[in-house]
């Protein structure tokens, strides 16, 4: 569905996108994850024909994004960071003109608009001025507009930025359902870690305009970070003794706590507890910390995705894992 080779975009001296090779197959749900300014949106803007690449090529839905723009546009849907509906317009009117823009007849556009208004729960607000709608309602209207022509490929640029947690969950549900019901290929950018984690089967981590990792969230975490097992003891002496009682494990004592980095943590814990019990050092508490995608990013780049911005509302786990 998408194929890029050495895709590059320079803005004056800045290499916003620095040689991206990407292949996305039909039916995939892919998240581009990275900090602000990583080049995610620029990549998306090239793939959606909004800006031409400086160099490299991209084929989207079977057509070149530079030479066959109209063909690409006809086949893709795009939901940008802003609000697609004009603020002085009515939602239903915007949906109908959007349908007309894709070559639908008036009647067809009207029917399709009503269908989407219904399925996105916009019935009560569709005939109101867009400016009076809430953020969540506007976002749903944006989605409806992106779907008017039932595109085979849908791009979403930071779809849930600025939404409250409830609306975010609601939006994610719509996206996942869309995928399940219509087998739409979906590419989204996000800097919400949990969003990439829970929705996408494939996460492409982008930093400084390059792809630095590309895999399923589970494999990215297992491969780049692994789990951390925290064992609590009653005294510091016991903790130090326990560290030597677990040979072959990267166990490091921190006060009354022993930290062990391992793969498949939950499966390792019973064996560890057994070893400690036979050494006469029973653990007082056990905790297994699974890595987040932020930990993956931290391992890959030495920086946290959360640095320099309120990027996620989840509790940071990095300082626990960074041993």
């Amino acid at each position: 569905m998408i194929e890029t080779r050495g895709l590059t975009k320079h803005f004056k001296d800045v290499r916003a996108v620095d040689g991206i090779d990407l292949t996305v197959a039909r039916g995939e749900l892919v998240a581009l994850l990275g900090p602000n300014g990583a080049g995610k949106s620029t990549t998306l803007r090239m793939l959606t024909t909004l800006i031409p690449p400086t160099s490299g090529t991209a084929t989207v839905a079977g057509f070149d994004v530079v030479r066959r723009q109209r063909e690409v546009r006809q086949r893709i849907g795009y939901i940008g960071q802003g609000n697609g509906a004009g603020h002085s317009q009515r939602g239903r009117d915007e949906l109908i003109s959007q349908g007309r823009a894709y070559g639908m007849g008036v009647r067809q556009a009207r029917v399709r608009a009503a269908e989407l208004i219904d399925s996105l729960g916009l019935g009560e607000v569709a005939d109101r001025k867009v400016a009076t709608l809430s953020g969540g309602q506007r976002r749903r209207l944006d989605i409806a507009m992106g779907l008017i022509h039932a595109p085979e490929l849908l791009f979403l640029d930071e779809p849930s930025t600025g939404l409250d947690p409830q609306n975010r969950a609601n939006l994610q549900e719509h996206i996942v359902r869309l995928r399940a019901e219509h087998d739409t290929t979906i590419v989204l950018t996000t800097h919400y870690l949990d969003e990439a984690d829970s929705m996408a089967e494939r996460v492409i981590v982008v930093d400084h305009g390059r792809v630095i990792a590309d895999d399923s969230p589970a494999r990215l975490k297992a491969e780049h970070v692994g789990d951390t097992v925290l064992l609590g003891f009653d005294s510091e002496q016991e903790t130090t003794a326990a560290a030597t009682a677990l040979p072959g494990r990267a166990a490091q004592p921190y006060g009354k706590e022993l930290r062990i980095r391992t793969q498949g943590g939950p499966r390792q814990v019973p064996g560890m507890l057994e070893d400690l019990r036979s050494a006469g050092l029973p653990a007082a508490s056990v905790e297994v910390i699974r890595p987040t995608l932020d930990d993956v990013f931290l391992t890959l780049t030495g920086r946290s995705l959360r640095e320099g911005g309120a990027n996620s509302d989840r509790q940071p786990a990095t300082e626990l894992v960074e041993v």
Binding site: T49, L50, Q74, G80, G82, Y102
Partner: peptide, 18 residues
């Protein structure tokens, strides 16, 4: 200008409108 700021201009640019 206003539609550029809100995003509806961008949305129209992605449609096949000439």
């Amino acid at each position: 200008l206003f539609e550029i700021q809100t995003g509806s201009h961008e949305r129209m640019l992605v449609t096949p409108l000439r």
